[in-house]
Design a protein around this nucleic acid. Structure first.
Lengths: 220, 220
DNA sequence: AAGGCGCATGAATCCTGATTCATTCTTATT
DNA sequence: AATAAGAATGAATCAGGATTCATGCGCCTT
């Protein structure tokens, strides 16, 4: 009869599951989402193509898992930085900076994941991720408005626009190539644009903490 | 021997060329770039699939022509509005508003074209279009800075970020659904964010013209 | 230690959509 | 009107990738 999966086997299965996602991630970071194909992913994960299907019913599910993982990390980064800040406006600034630095650190991956749908189904997943990020930002904007740190405004619309501003300004094809010092400068530039867009007249003058809350060299 | 193409024939060929692009555009606007496929495009243009290849050597060329056409219109819209404004800052504001209104008017098309590559080759074309738009905006930003209407800043980076802000804020999946009055309000909201990002403290207070320079109902 | 079940394999198959090309239709030349 | 060249057709072919599945392997159960 059907036998019970032993602990060791379960662990093995879980490890493979993760290894597949990791392989997909590596490929996406290096060559973009379009290069995330079953055979290459399987090769990189050290398994056969068919095996991928034992872990993900369809490629879409794999890509979905990839996007979800990346997105979760992005949001966690934002939230952690924001939570550590002294006030609502600093929280927003800190969150944005942390997000920016994080995005730049793994520019290729962020671009791949936020770049575009390969597929209508994937598009929906990507949308969910972006929505989550926007929601996080929106909440912080609202908090700052309540506290009188920002002028009244449509927080949802502002959050959506900020997501676009940050992504395009940091990792979009038009963004300045980001290496070392230039990258750090760009984080500052883009964050300043974002804060000003919300109505902060001069972030530094108002005592907002906008300096390297998160070192750009953080682990990925 | 090879006979000369009469005027009538030349006109016919040109008309078909345009009809194919128009068909592709309709489909892109309605269903996205991915739906721009040879057979459907040919059908809509009223010709056979093979015929498309007499006008475009490959699908990539067709999509490229489509993107170029859309992009050219976007830039012309921006430029025309900017040129009609009284000063550099108004020019920037007017251009952005005009662009925003235009983008919203043909949301589907703009989204399809700026949405993303189906293909590395197409990506390059799209990039060129986006670059052109950013360059236009960048020039206006520089002019406003020179005139002392905006604080010193990295105009290129700002322009890139603004492109992202506008597109995401207006037609991105997170943007508020744009119908009628809501659309007009969103144009104002997004433009205000953009101007503030550049350092305009209060557009209206500084006499910048931000009202319906271009009616939202313009012809597409 | 034998039996049975789940896991892994990877070549074969399927699908989707671009591209080709032998054939047919039109138009310009004589 | 006859003839040749260009234009159009659309079914067949190709190509790239996802997905399947018959087969082999090794780990639980008894």
């Amino acid at each position: 009869m059907a036998y019970r999966r032993t602990e060791r086997v379960l662990q093995h299965l879980a490890a493979r599951h993760d290894a597949i996602i990791a392989a997909a991630q590596d490929i996406a970071a290096a060559e973009g989402l379009a290069a995330v194909q079953i055979v290459p992913v399987a090769e990189r994960a050290g398994i056969a193509a068919g095996t991928v299907y034992r872990y993900f019913p369809a490629k879409t599910d794999l890509v979905g898992a990839l996007i979800a993982a990346v997105s979760a990390r992005e949001i966690a980064t934002f939230r952690k930085a924001a939570d550590a800040a002294p006030g609502p406006l600093s929280a927003l600034a800190a969150g944005l900076i942390a997000f920016a630095a994080h995005a730049l650190r793994q520019r290729g991956l962020t671009w791949a994941v936020s770049g575009e749908p390969v597929d209508g189904a994937v598009e929906r997943l990507r949308l969910a991720a972006r929505k989550a990020l926007a929601a996080e930002i929106e909440a912080r904007i609202r908090a700052a408005i309540s506290g009188g740190h920002l002028p009244e405004q449509d927080a949802a619309a502002a959050a959506a626009a900020l997501v676009g501003l940050m992504l395009e300004g940091l990792i979009g094809p038009l963004a300045p190539p980001a290496a070392g010092a230039a990258a750090r400068a760009n984080v500052q530039t883009v964050t300043l644009l974002a804060l000003r867009a919300l109505g902060v007249v001069d972030a530094r003058a108002r005592g907002v903490v906008v300096q390297s809350i998160v070192p750009v060299e953080d682990a990925a």
